[in-house]
Amino acid sequence: MTEYKLVVVGAGGVGKSALTIQLIQNHFVDEYDPTIEDSYRKQVVIDGETCLLDILDTAGQEEYSAMRDQYMRTGEGFLCVFAINNTKSFEDIHHYREQIKRVKDSEDVPMVLVGNKCDLPSRTVDTKQAQDLARSYGIPFIETSAKTRQGVDDAFYTLVREIRKHKEKMSKDGKKKKKKSKTKCVIM
């Protein structure tokens, strides 16, 4: 069974824990209790493949930012979460993405942009803004509501699919490099 290491990042209060708990335990946590770091595991079937999701729910508070490099190193894919009623959390996505790329030393890291709290009427981040940002990053965008469960499975499952595509691409690139290195030079 394939294991996928997913990391949920975003500013404090955007609903990272609520999304994760909704996926794992099928219930909505409405009281806000700032996370330092929590880890969850769940076995699911995605596109006919049974897999184990190892999900790291991270601290959004700035005082825990020193811990970010460590979990970013171990993560295979990242859910970059903002709240649709919090423009600052949307603007912060850029910083999370840049930090992930720096730590992973790669421009090509599996990510999904997630606009959470889409059940709320007080939207300050337009869907088109988020779609445009995701398009500019070359990553999928999904709106979710941890409260109603809308888009929750889709967000995590899409990230797994992005990781699969990335692994497939990397193995193809690896095979191309191996083929090239088999060419021999004969000096007579």
Rank of each mutant, 00 (worst) to 15 (best):
T2C: 13
P34F: 14
G15C: 02
V29M: 13
V9W: 11
V7H: 13
S39W: 05
Q25N: 09
G13H: 11
K16F: 00
G60Q: 06
V45T: 08
D38C: 03
I36D: 01
I55V: 12
D30M: 12
L52Q: 10
S17W: 00
D30P: 08
L52I: 13
V29R: 12
L19A: 14
V29W: 10
G10E: 01
E3D: 12
Q43L: 04
Q43A: 04
L52K: 12
L53K: 04
E62C: 14
L56C: 05
Q22P: 02
E31L: 05
E49Y: 07
E3A: 08
T58Q: 04
Q25F: 08
V8F: 03
Y40R: 04
H27G: 12
D47N: 08
D47S: 07
Q43E: 05
S17L: 00
T2N: 14
Q22C: 05
V29F: 07
V7L: 06
V44T: 10
E62W: 11
N26E: 06
A59P: 10
E37M: 02
E31C: 09
F28R: 02
V8A: 05
I46H: 07
T20D: 15
E37G: 02
L52W: 07
D38Q: 02
E63A: 04
V45H: 09
D30N: 13
N26G: 09
I21W: 11
V44C: 11
K42G: 09
D33I: 12
K5E: 09
V45S: 08
E31D: 13
Q25R: 14
D33Q: 13
L23E: 15
L23R: 06
P34K: 01
V45Q: 12
E37R: 00
G12H: 08
I24T: 14
D47C: 04
V9I: 14
I55S: 08
T20A: 14
K16S: 06
L53P: 05
V7K: 01
Y4Q: 08
E62Y: 07
V9T: 04
I36T: 00
I24F: 09
L53M: 13
A11N: 10
Q43C: 04
E62A: 08
Q61V: 15
D30S: 12
Y40W: 11
L52G: 10
L23I: 07
Q25C: 08
Q22G: 09
V7E: 07
I24S: 14
G10H: 00
V29N: 12
